[in-house]
Design a binder for these strands. Structure first.
Lengths: 156, 156
DNA sequence: TGTATTGCTGACAGAATTAGTAAACATATT
DNA sequence: AATATGTTTACTAATTCTGTCAGCAATACA
C-alpha cells in the first residue's frame, strides 16, 4: 500500500497512451479512459512531461503522446518519478542511506535491501510494451466509469 | 520508504530479545539497546504481546521475552502486525483487493502482485534465528546512542 | 499492608503526507 | 478575437505518522 494514488494514475495514463500508439490524447479523454479525476491528471501529466516521459501540444488538436518508444519506458521509471526511493526503509536506500544507530552488524538492513532490489528488478524489468501486449481486451470497466467523468456519456 | 518507524522499532526490539536469548529485558534496557524512544516502545511492545510474539512480566525483575523460538518468528509476521497488507497498491492485496476501474485486462495489477509476492517471499523466508546468526558483532553504534536515551549515561 | 518497580492504556499535539478542487495563466489554431 | 487546449499555483480537508505524557494495573518484597 505504498504506491500513491498519483503514481497509480500516472502508470495508467502511460498505459493508455501506449495503447493509443502514437495518436495524441487530450487530457479530458485520457482522464476518461483511465478513470482519473481530470483535475488530478492536470498535475500528473506535466510532471511526466518534465521527466521526459511524455510530450504535449497545446491548442486545438493538441494532447499528449509518449516521448519514447514503449519498450524504453519501464514501470520503475514512472514509479520513481512519483515515489522517490524504492527502499522500504530509509536506512536501505541506494543513494543516501540514513545512518541508523544499529549500522554495525544490523542484519535487518540487508533484508530491507533485498526487498528493495527485488522490487527494482521487477519494476525495472517490465516495459510498457510488455504491459500493452498483455493488456489484451478492453481494459476499462464501463460500469465503474459512471461519475468518473461526468460528461463521458454512454458513448463507446 | 513504506516501512513505518514503529515497524522498524518492533523488528529491532525482537532482534534484541533474540540476541538476549531467554533472559528478560526491561523496557528501559530494550529502549537503550535499540535506540528507540522509551515512550514509543511502551506502545509497540504491548501490540506485539497481543499478537503473541512476546510475553511480559510485571514488577521488579519483570521484562519482556520472546514468546516463541526465534526460528518460528519471521520478519513478515512482525511487519504485518504493524503495516497491514504488504501489497504496494490496494488493488493487489490478497484478501480484499479494491476493485479498480481497470480490472478487465489491467496488466498493471499483475506486476503489483508480483512485487507483493516477492516481498512476502523475502520477509517470510527470514526468521529471527537467521537474523541473530548474521548479526555477529556489537550491533549498536555507541557514538549514535547519545541522546537516544537521556539517562543512558556515557557509560558502556 | 504498603511501597517500589515494572508493564499497560488512552488521550493528545504537532508534523507530515495525501487527495482532490479550483482559479488564473500560457499557447496554439481558426 | 474567440476557442481549445495544456500549465501552474494556491488551497482545503482528511488522514497518517511520530512522539509525549499522565495515570492505571500488577508483581515482588519488606
Amino acid at each position: 500500500m505504498w504506491v500513491s494514488r498519483r503514481t497509480d494514475y500516472a502508470t495508467r495514463a502511460v498505459l493508455a497512451l501506449t495503447l493509443e500508439d502514437g495518436g495524441p490524447l487530450k487530457l479530458e479523454e485520457l482522464a476518461r479512459r483511465t478513470a482519473v479525476p481530470q483535475s488530478v491528471l492536470e498535475q500528473v501529466m506535466p510532471t511526466m512531461r518534465t521527466a521526459g516521459i511524455v510530450r504535449s501540444e497545446r491548442g486545438p488538436s493538441g494532447g499528449y503522446r509518449l516521448n519514447k518508444k514503449p519498450e524504453e519506458i519501464t514501470l520503475e521509471r514512472i514509479v520513481r518519478v512519483f515515489q522517490g526511493p524504492l527502499a522500504p526503509i530509509s536506512c536501505a536506500t541506494r543513494h543516501n542511506p540514513e545512518p541508523c544507530p544499529m549500522t554495525i552488524g544490523c542484519s535487518l538492513r540487508s533484508v530491507w535491501e533485498e526487498v528493495r532490489d527485488a522490487t527494482i528488478a521487477l519494476l525495472g524489468g517490465v516495459t510498457f510494451a510488455d504491459l500493452a501486449s498483455r493488456a489484451g481486451g478492453p481494459w476499462l470497466d464501463p460500469s465503474l466509469l459512471v461519475g468518473a467523468a461526468q460528461d463521458a456519456g454512454g458513448g463507446g
